[in-house]
């Protein structure tokens, strides 16, 4: 069974249909890169996976469970209780373009907050685990700093550690390096590369083609709210079949 099953998902913002029947399966341990022009619906799709956005049709399952919905006796989807969805979300890590570290908490507190508050991990245990995670992203010496005292690249690595502290079975990355100065991109990609090598299941929206080429098992091309093409990076980059993929790659490579 795939870890993530996305089935004919439709999503509208008012009149605007942003996802027009997206289907996509992601196997456990797989690294999938989502490509597509601005406005094609990549962010929206990621946010639907952990139910930060509602969907209007279709369904999304993670580890065999619907996220954000229960199926009623009539077969229709109904929004599920916040507490239940939250518990499912806790196992899905998300890394944002703008880091979104908690500004009022230190680096260490950023990483311990959710394990302690959500998973009820004892503080001492959460701390020692947080320090290990910070060490693994090379930031143990910054544990007592506040986010605004760190560079963008450091903040994003903390954000990754914060997500990993919840022991997620799936990590979602939404353009994790596009708010960074060019010289800081490498350190974040390196962290993600090591995470991929450790076997984490990852869905990554990025314009970093080298990352897609070297790390992705599969690349998905989206346009206008639909998946128009997918395949292993070597194939998709060297021999794209859809004209819009060709145009997109020509622009970006």
């Amino acid at each position: 069974m795939p870890l993530v099953e996305i089935n004919n998902v439709h999503k509208r913002f008012g009149e605007l249909e942003v996802l027009k029947g997206v289907s996509l399966d992601v196997e456990a341990g797989e690294v999938v890169v989502l490509l597509g022009a601005s406005g094609s619906g990549k962010t929206t799709l990621l946010r639907c996976i952990n139910h930060l956005e509602t969907i209007h049709d279709g369904e999304i399952k993670v580890a065999g469970e619907l996220v954000g919905y229960t199926r009623g006796k009539d077969g229709k989807l109904r929004e599920e209780k916040d507490a239940i969805t939250s518990a499912k979300r806790a196992r899905i890590g998300m890394v944002f373009q703008r880091f979104n570290l908690f500004a009022h908490l230190t680096v260490l507190e950023n990483v311990t907050e959710a394990p302690v508050q959500v998973l009820r991990v004892p503080l001492a245990e959460a701390r020692s685990r947080a320090l290990d995670l910070l060490a693994s992203v090379g930031l143990k010496d910054k544990a007592g700093y506040y986010p605004h005292e760190l560079s963008g690249g450091q903040q994003q690595r903390v954000a990754i550690a914060r997500a990993l502290a919840m022991e997620p079975r799936l990590m979602l990355f939404d353009e994790p390096t596009s708010a960074l100065d060019p010289e800081l991109v490498g350190e974040v990609l390196e962290t993600m590369r090591r995470l991929a090598a450790s076997g984490m299941t990852m869905i990554v929206v990025t314009h970093e083609m080298s990352f897609a080429r070297e790390v992705a098992d599969r690349v998905i091309m989206m346009a206008d709210g639909q998946v128009i093409e997918e395949g292993p990076p070597a194939q998709l980059f060297s021999a794209p079949s859809h004209p819009r993929t060709k145009a997109f790659l020509a622009r970006i490579l």
Partner: peptide, 27 residues
Amino acid sequence: VDPGQREAARALGMTKAKAMRRIVMPQ
């Protein structure tokens, strides 16, 4: 408070109430 703060809290599995109490309100 930047909406991203609440989003991050929600993405980490906090309920609406907890995100409000622990993340949004202190800021």
